[in-house]
């Protein structure tokens, strides 16, 4: 059976004041039914753009899909009409956004917003949808869901709003749930609750989950497989254990080294020196070359773009992956 989601050679550009930014450049990955895949990478590496493209939520313009394919349940999403896509969004594939403070409509009651998600995809009455919305709010751990449903977003705390967002996302038992940094905007204590809620939601619906995050701790805790993105490309892909144990791309290694570790005496973080390349005029060769500790002056790195290839069960885009630690 083919995977639930297959993204192939996706390339997306943004037209900006200063020129064309290549936000995604040949991104390919798959998501199997029911699995949890994490996407990690620095800010601006293209994680959100990937998610938005999959669901057809990119604003075009300024974005433009240059090439590639997104197959979901064997249908090519990039070629669907707006209406066909709309029927999939929120039903088979749903999304949770980063900032729960602004992601909800401020002038609509929370229950109504959840009920809308239900009514868009199934022929139920207003009352039935509202009753289900209240159930969902209870399911995501909200006390007094009936009262809460009648409140407006501003009466909710950040964590509660994210719960409401998750309730909305799982309202139609989606097969795919994309969560774009669902905890970044929240307090540390709330983060853990929301993560465990996501796990519950997943058990409840059996949805495959794509979890976008900066936080490698979250990855270790939640994901089965990891995609590492850098400058609009996937540079490494592997299952969680082996990625953490033996990264096969120097960028991944750098990311792992920058995690503060409790078991190590030293409190110093070692973030990767330098910053990602401009997406406006990507240099030929490996985009990581200017910051790479492994390169050590090798000419190949700046002349030839490393393709994703298999090394020790990882997919990695490094000419010298075998030497990576």
């Amino acid at each position: 059976m083919s995977p639930l989601l297959t993204v192939e050679d996706l390339a997306v550009e943004f037209r900006t004041e200063d020129g064309v930014a290549r936000a995604l450049d040949g991104v390919s990955f798959t998501v199997e039914a029911g699995e949890t895949v994490a996407i990690v990478g620095e800010s601006g590496s293209g994680k959100s753009v990937t998610a938005l493209t999959v669901l057809g939520l990119l604003r075009r313009p300024p974005a433009r899909i240059v090439r590639g394919s997104v197959r979901f349940r064997d249908r090519e999403l990039l070629r669907l009409s707006r209406d066909e896509l709309r029927k999939i969004r929120g039903k088979d594939a749903a999304m949770v956004f980063q900032d729960p403070m602004t992601a909800l409509n401020p002038v609509q009651r929370v229950g109504k917003q959840i009920a809308e998600a239900i009514r868009l995809h199934s022929a139920v009455s207003r009352q039935q949808a509202m009753a289900r919305a209240v159930d969902l709010l209870g399911l995501v751990g909200m006390a007094q869901p009936g009262t809460r449903a009648r409140q407006y977003p501003h009466e909710f705390s950040g964590g509660m709003r994210q719960r409401a967002m998750i309730a909305m996302a799982i309202a139609n038992d989606p097969a795919l749930l994309i969560a774009d940094e669902p905890t970044t905007a929240l307090d540390v204590t709330i983060q853990a609750q929301v993560l465990s809620l996501l796990r519950t939601a997943k058990q409840e619906t059996g949805a495959a989950t794509v979890l976008i995050t900066h936080d490698l701790g979250v990855v270790a805790e939640m994901a089965e497989r990891v995609l590492v993105m850098y400058a609009g490309r996937i540079v490494e892909q592997a299952d969680v254990r082996s990625l953490f144990a033996s990264p096969r791309h120097p960028y991944t290694a750098g990311l792992l080294a920058s995690i503060p570790r409790l078991d190590v005496e030293s409190q110093t973080l070692t973030p990767i020196p330098g910053s990602p390349p401009s997406l406006l005029a990507p240099p030929p060769g490996c985009p990581f070359a200017p910051r790479c500790a492994l390169r050590q002056g090798r000419a190949e790195c700046v002349s030839e773009r490393p393709a994703l290839r298999e090394v020790d069960g990882h997919a990695t885009a490094c000419h010298f992956a075998e030497l990576a630690e």
Binding site: R86, R89, G90, F97, L104, N105, A117, L120, M168, A169
Partner: peptide, 11 residues
């Protein structure tokens, strides 16, 4: 942002 949320719901 809520516009994108609505779109993501299928509105």
């Amino acid at each position: 942002d809520y516009v994108r949320t609505a779109e993501a719901k299928g509105v």
